[in-house]
Structure formats: C-alpha cells, structure tokens
C-alpha cells in the first residue's frame, strides 16, 4: 500500500520554483531559511572548500546534520558518496528528508550506484544527460539535478547538461513509437522510462539545476533553460553578502522570466564568489558515476 517512490517524487514537487542552499552551520541554515530557501543541504564543507582541500571527501558528521535539522523547519538534505549505501543507511536513520548521492564527495563505488528503491527516504542524483538521468531514476532516484561543476562559480557545465538533457527529451518526443526500443537500447535504460518521456516531454521526476550558480542571472538562465528549481552551493556563503545574495537568488527563481525584476535583484549584491573557469580545474567531478 505504501508507495514511497510516489511520496518521495511528490516532496520534490513541493520544492519546485525554489532554491536549495548548501549550509555548514545552524547559523547559515537559519540565514538560508529566512532568505526563503525551500530546503538546505547540510554538509561540513561546501564544494569550493572540498575542491581546495583535496583528499577523500565523505558524508558529514550526523551530529552536525542533526544540529541543522534542529535549527530549521524546512527540509534538510545531506550528501552521501556514490555507491556508499551504508552512509545512506546512516542518513536514513537520522531521518534526513533527502539524500544527495553526490559526485561532489569521493565516489565509494566506481561501478554500482546505490539501489535507492531499498530506502524509504528519497534520493536526488546528478545527471549530465538524459541516459544518466533515466538510469538514476530506474535505480530509484526521485529527483534529478544537473552535475554542473561544483565549487567553481562557473555555470557552463550546468548549462551544457541542461541543454543536452532538454534536447534529448525533445528528440525522444519526436520519435515514432517503433523507434523507442532502439532509443532505450542506446540510452541503456528501460523502455518504460523512454516511453514516459516520449509521451510527456519531460522526466518523470523533478529536475533542478546544480553546480556553478553564483548570481540571480545564473539562476534565471537555468530556469529559462528548463530547470524547475536551483541548488546553490558555494555561491552564497562564499560571497561578500550571503544574506542579500540568498534573497536575490530566491526571488530570481520566482521571477526568472522578468528582466526588470532581475535587474533590480542584481544590484548591489557585493562580491560574487571568486570563480574558477572549468579549463583551470584539475578535477572534473561531473565525470564521477555515469
């Protein structure tokens, strides 16, 4: 009777049109909530610092996550390593609202992702293209996000992933029924998921943008490209005025199609995070877990 997959997809529906912010302390979580975040991602280090620190990056201390759960009333998400189902079990035990099986942490398994259908808590996973998105959904992910390069402040990868996914979706919609079997084979995903996209012109789960969002304009760009909401990681608490920038990005997602409002929101935000261009970085996290 209990259909967790559906309930978990529906929680993601409630997050649409919203901004999910990375936070490392209860104080940051409260700032994010007050600014209008629809959820927070609790982690010990934001991606920019993970990138700078190097080494193996793991799930955060459950005590630290609990501190954030106690600080806010909005949903709290946390990351586990790709394939690390024991970390996921721990996050489920502390009643996390969403697990991000994330390439931002060091992968624990280079072949298998977590069998997410075995869990009662929901999972969000990153994807660079339609095949990856549908494979994660088949494994039980109930929300998808782009795998834009985290901790860089460079939007180019998120744009690339979202554009590719949307154009692949449009292509599937245009196929004849008898061509869908071959499409399923090429995408390495079950026929039923291909059929769903063909008939509905969208993924069967909510699709957010993530990675490299640093300004209200970045958020608006991703929404206009078809994202249903935005994750902001390092972009907020690595900037000069986190509170103001957080509020501005929240409102930019609501008014993503209104350049007059976006112009006002983009004023006087102080320093944006110092970005790194994708060509300057050593480690492409998007290549983790395909």
């Amino acid at each position: 009777m209990e259909d967790r997959q559906t309930l978990n997809r529906q929680l993601a529906q409630m997050l649409k049109g919203g901004v999910i912010m990375d936070v490392t302390t209860p104080e940051q979580a409260r700032i994010a909530e007050a600014a209008g975040a629809c959820a927070v991602m609790a982690l010990e280090r934001i991606p920019a610092d993970i990138r700078a620190a190097g080494g193996v990056s793991r799930m955060s201390d459950p005590k630290m996550i609990r501190g954030i759960q106690e600080a806010v009333t909005i949903p709290v998400m946390a990351k586990c390593r790709i394939g690390h189902f024991a970390e996921a079990q721990i996050l489920e035990a502390i009643e996390i609202d969403y697990i991000d099986e994330s390439e931002v942490l060091s992968p624990a398994d280079d072949i298998y992702h977590i069998d997410k259908r075995k869990f009662r808590v929901p999972f969000v996973c990153g994807a660079k293209d339609l095949g990856e998105a549908l494979r994660r959904i088949n494994e039980g992910a109930t929300m998808i996000r782009t795998k834009g390069e985290p901790g860089t402040g460079d939007i180019i990868q998120a744009v690339r992933h979202m554009r590719l996914m949307q154009s692949e979706i449009r292509r599937l919609v245009s196929l004849n029924d008898d061509e869908l079997y071959e499409a399923a084979k090429q995408l390495r995903v079950p026929y039923d998921l291909v059929r769903y996209v063909h008939e509905n012109g969208k993924l069967p789960v909510v699709n957010f943008a993530a990675g490299g969002v640093a300004t209200p304009a970045d958020a608006a760009l991703m929404m206009q490209l078809g994202a249903e909401g935005v994750f902001v990681g390092s972009g907020i608490f690595k900037s000069g005025n986190p509170e103001k920038r957080a509020q501005a990005i929240v409102k930019a997602v609501t008014n993503y199609n209104n350049p007059t409002v976006l112009a006002e929101l983009s004023e006087d935000l102080g320093e944006a995070m110092v970005g790194i261009n994708e060509s300057e970085i050593q480690l492409l996290m998007a290549e983790r877990g395909l």
């Binding site: 529906q13 409630m14 997050l15 649409k16 049109g17 919203g18 909530e33 007050a34 600014a35 209008g36 975040a37 629809c38 959820a39 009333t73 909005i74 949903p75 509020q247 929240v250 409102k251 609501t254």
Partner: peptide, 10 residues
C-alpha cells in the same frame, strides 16, 4: 503546497 517560510518571505 511548498514551503510556507519561503512563500511568506517573498
């Protein structure tokens, strides 16, 4: 439906 804190703020 959504997050009431987010909607109230905006």
């Amino acid at each position: 439906g959504g997050e009431s804190t987010a909607m109230m703020r905006i």
